[in-house]
Design a protein around this nucleic acid. Structure first.
Lengths: 344, 344
DNA sequence: CTGTTAGCGCCTTCAT
DNA sequence: ATGAAGGCGCTAACAG
């Protein structure tokens, strides 16, 4: 059994409060004489006293710990730099503020318990989806919550940190339109299709097409199931798209891989644009054209803002929208039929 | 203020114990009638009752949370895949065991407190150094601890998970020796020079040289300070090494970068071997020859073993040693003087 | 200046 | 089958 504050107090012949005051500076009304303080410090060291964090937190209602939450989150860094940036941003801000960061794979535990249970001072939510659970969870939160990738349009009651999807997709679509593409599809993996940001990007995509005088092709997001024959089927369909804009870098890279296996030439047969533009866009062959968002900055700001709320220095729910960029690499080009026309 | 077990009890007209029993199944001697149980469940739902995790943990002395600790740990995934693997391994094992994982930047907080303070059921220590603090911390641990990268030779009182440095460095040295290198240096960055594994690899390096009939050059690890002129100075020294074995992939990549700037030809002027062999070894130019260790597996095993100890199914301190591999890529070749001799 | 009291929310133990 | 008492370790609030 670990030594408690009472053990120290007893051995030093003082009250527990005196010990608390000397060792943790708590108890404003308590004043301790210098010699008594020294005695307490000595005894505490002798007994190798370590204050129990749980007890302190229970009493003070502060844990100095932040939760970083995903739903169904699995691995980092495999084929995307996204999580690296996310972790670096969140860890950076948390550690600067002297908070610990706990990684939680999901918001609702198996037994229905939630994370608003005293363990955390606040919560950074990385992957909100459109389910009722999500809405209800946000509404029933008893600690400060901030959300990443929750479009400002949904006006949630918590601060959100999101990129400017309209602008990002406008850049992507314009780039493809200028190259001569007329049939552009928006692709998303099945696991992500219920994310709020998925529908936001789809809407932004449609609007961008409209502004470029184009129509969506097909008129719904292409759901990608990571099955082997899917690309071949797509390429052999009648009005097949000549370009894809993908929900993520990871998805774009896996389509590029499948293209390589299937014999589909990127970018000649098909142009591909990813979302998020990290080092992995440079390691694929061909290198991947991608819309970029400042993920690390967003995660850092979100976490820092959360800490401000926790510590009472900021209150009003605000929305933070970050500009996107477009990094043009090798996976986009003029569509083949145009090239052919030129030659003939 | 969140609703407590007492609020529920009061509203349902029962004792707190009945509520505890029904909602958490704790309290073996308590039996509750079915209708009372249903009432309690209904009231709990009505009041949106969430049990306080801190209070439960304080009482039960279980937090189902594991700490992943580094000293002076900063960013992940920037120029090394090491942390990705580490995180994936540790998170995988923790989540499988229904534990949360808290990332802690250092073992001793600023105010001298340690992490053995009730917050964690156990601790995975990722970067033990040779300081007295470290030794003392291990010895004073009041919760189970496992260490990564702590060579079995130091026989610590806790389980360690380490790669076979002797074998790894033997492979690296033999590879270079076969190419004709006679002056091989071992390089380590200043920030890592105090790690226990640093001295272990240095010793393993010397032994490997001996077995190949070579001598260390120079007879001490080269400390790399990431300053601009360092490579130029090294290359202009009289008995300069023709090959470097680096403590890490990260270090190797930064030396390759500096070489590019300085005009040093890799591998013609200088061969370079890294430690850890991840995707980043393929993205450098030239691609990096590297000794590999199964970091993700090690982290997974370490965390899983820690959980076993926590849950009382394994006890004896054991050491786990993992085999290394050697991935030969483009950053190693015959030394220039041999090539010249052949031509002349 | 110092000490006592009374919980934070939960659960083990013992009594009914 | 149920409830009361007490305490995990700490500290805010209130005496002395």
């Amino acid at each position: 059994m670990a030594t408690t504050i009472r053990d120290v107090a007893e051995k030093a012949g003082v009250s527990p409060m005196a010990v608390s005051k000397v060792l943790h500076g708590k108890g404003d009304t308590v004043r301790v004489s210098k010699e008594k303080a020294l005695l307490i410090l000595r005894v505490a060291k002798e007994l190798n006293y370590q204050p129990n964090y749980l007890a302190r937190s229970l009493r003070s209602r502060k844990t100095r710990t932040i939760a970083l939450v995903f739903d169904h989150f699995q691995r980092i860094g495999d084929q995307t730099g996204y999580f690296n940036q996310l972790f670096n941003g969140a860890m950076g801000a948390a550690f600067e503020g002297e908070y610990s960061l706990t990684i939680c794979p999901r918001l609702n535990s198996l037994d229905g318990r939630r994370l608003f249970d005293g363990r955390f001072d606040g919560l950074v939510w990385g992957k909100p989806d459109v389910s009722d659970d999500t809405r209800e969870a946000i509404e029933s939160a008893t600690i400060p919550v901030v959300c990443l990738h929750l479009p400002a349009e949904v006006s949630p009651p918590v601060p959100v940190f999101c990129c400017d999807n309209r602008q990002g997709l406008r850049m992507g679509v314009e780039h493809l339109a200028k190259l001569g593409h007329e049939r552009i599809a928006f692709v998303i993996d099945d696991v992500n299709q219920n994310l709020i940001e998925a529908s936001a990007r789809w809407q932004a995509f449609r609007q961008a097409l409209q502004e470029s005088g184009l129509e969506a092709c097909p008129d719904a997001p292409l759901i990608w199931r990571h099955q082997d024959g899917q690309l071949a089927r797509l390429m052999s369909s009648a009005r097949r798209p000549t370009a894809l804009i993908c929900f993520s870098e990871y998805l774009a890279v896996s389509i590029v891989r499948q293209a390589e296996k299937t014999g589909v030439q990127i970018p000649n047969d098909l142009s591909i644009v990813g979302y998020d533009s990290t080092v992995f866009c440079d390691t694929s062959t061909p290198r991947l054209t991608a819309i970029s968002q400042p993920v690390e900055q967003m995660a850092h700001d979100a976490t820092q803002h959360l800490i401000s709320i926790i510590e009472g220095t900021k209150m009003a729910p605000q929305h933070f929208v970050y500009p996107c960029g477009l990094d043009i690499r090798e996976s986009t080009a003029r569509p083949a039929h145009l090239t052919v026309e030129v030659i003939s």
